[in-house]
Design a protein around this nucleic acid. Structure first.
Lengths: 233, 233
DNA sequence: ACTCAACTGACGGAAACTGTCAGTTGAATG
DNA sequence: CATTCAACTGACAGTTTCCGTCAGTTGAGT
């Protein structure tokens, strides 16, 4: 069973998205290069999207993981419900991801359900939540990669402003999505209803976590002022 | 790689929830019983919840699946968001399932995220949604197993009734959970806000899908009358 | 032409797997 | 209490698979 472990570790190593030569991998795993080539064959045959190019090295673009994990029925239900909600209440990018994820799982699970009526959940999202979907992929990327965004925002009081923000987190409130960010205009934390963001674009600038301006600071700040239980911006 | 395939097939066979003896399994897979015993060891060591009892056979109670599947980053995000929502907006049973599922995935994924602050999502559920959590595990079970439930219900107009229902589906509306059911009192489809169900218990009776009273009939019925887009009971 | 590194094929030794056999154990049953 | 059932365990030999070594080939870039 050590071979299986080695394959898993191989994936662990190359999924950092960088180039790896067979020599390095062989050294890291303490096997011969030949074995690495054989393992790569095996992985490719198992559907792992690993690309090898002669003279270059091995590369895995999509980060993947392949845990042979065991789910209980209730966990399957949680997964199905979660994906149903995401499929309704999030932007198309996430929707498609949710759909494909659930598809993969259902395929493999080959769940014998008594009726074709799948899971017994229905999910219905609010229009106001949907309105913000356009900007969400960009905002998510900004959170991941630390991009400063310029947004045109119309507040509930109907005041329009343009400002640069450092997005920290998106929040789902059941009816609307918000984005919490460090606002460079106000030099403070602000939460924006995503459906009220009129335009949203990269500035080209990036930001790094900065003391006093991180998500942890924001959450601490919020916790001090109110217990946001059921609050609804 | 044939051993791995055999293990996968073993799981395929025993996850029907019925008893299997080593002899049968050995015959089915064309290996010796001794090999089956060894394979069972391996599976157990890998965390597959298979139970063997002397004199009885092998049994797998929890339906499991173990697809070595590959998820993209965006699918992981969808999963994390979904589990975050379920963790906030569903009853404790599902909450725990969501948590444990996400835990399993994160363990194995060993995702290197830049900050310990995980995923960049926040989810805040409504109190009214939470209020219905008590009844949800029972309702879910009733949907799965076709149980007739007796509920004490207080309508929005504040009228209290007691009735027997055949639960068909639960719906999540962002703010509240509802349960659609065939109502035996009114002899028609009704949707109940779960937070307004005061008591909820099994009647001991069961129901089988019955023409005109199934979830498909209900959905068709609803589709005829309105496009429930954003409607909010 | 040269370098790089992925790839391929062959072969022998090492390691892991498998079947056979001969038991033991725990629970249920007559 | 003896019997049956079927899960389990240990040992050993034969087989299969895996791995390292070696000696190449291929494709892309410089």
């Amino acid at each position: 069973m050590r071979r299986a472990d080695r394959l898993a570790e191989l994936v662990e190593i190359i999924r950092d998205g960088r180039l790896h030569t067979a020599r390095d991998l062989a050294a890291a795993l303490e096997v011969s290069e030949r074995t690495i080539y054989r393992d790569m064959d095996t992985l490719a045959a198992s559907g792992v999207p690993v690309e090898g190019e002669r003279g270059v090295g091995y590369l895995m673009r999509e980060p993947v993981f392949l845990p042979p994990l065991a789910l209980s029925l209730i966990e399957l239900e949680a997964l199905a419900l979660g994906m149903a909600i995401v499929g309704e209440a999030a932007d198309p990018e996430l929707q498609m991801a949710a759909e494909s994820l659930l598809g993969k799982v259902e395929d493999h699970a080959a769940v014998r359900r008594r009726s074709p009526r799948k899971w017994g959940f229905g999910v219905y999202a609010f229009e106001t939540a949907r309105a913000g979907f356009v900007h969400m992929p960009l905002i998510r990327r900004a959170i991941r990669d630390g991009l400063v965004l310029r947004i045109a925002y119309r507040s509930i009081a109907d005041e329009a402003t343009e400002r640069d923000i450092r997005p920290l987190q998106t929040e789902y409130w059941g009816r609307v999505w918000t984005c919490s960010a460090w606002c460079e205009l106000r030099a403070g934390f602000r939460a924006f209803r995503i459906d009220r963001i009129e335009t949203c674009a990269e500035t080209g600038r990036r930001f790094a976590p900065e003391a006093g301006k991180t998500i942890e600071d924001y959450l601490a700040h919020v916790a001090e002022h109110n217990h946001a239980e059921g609050r609804d911006p």
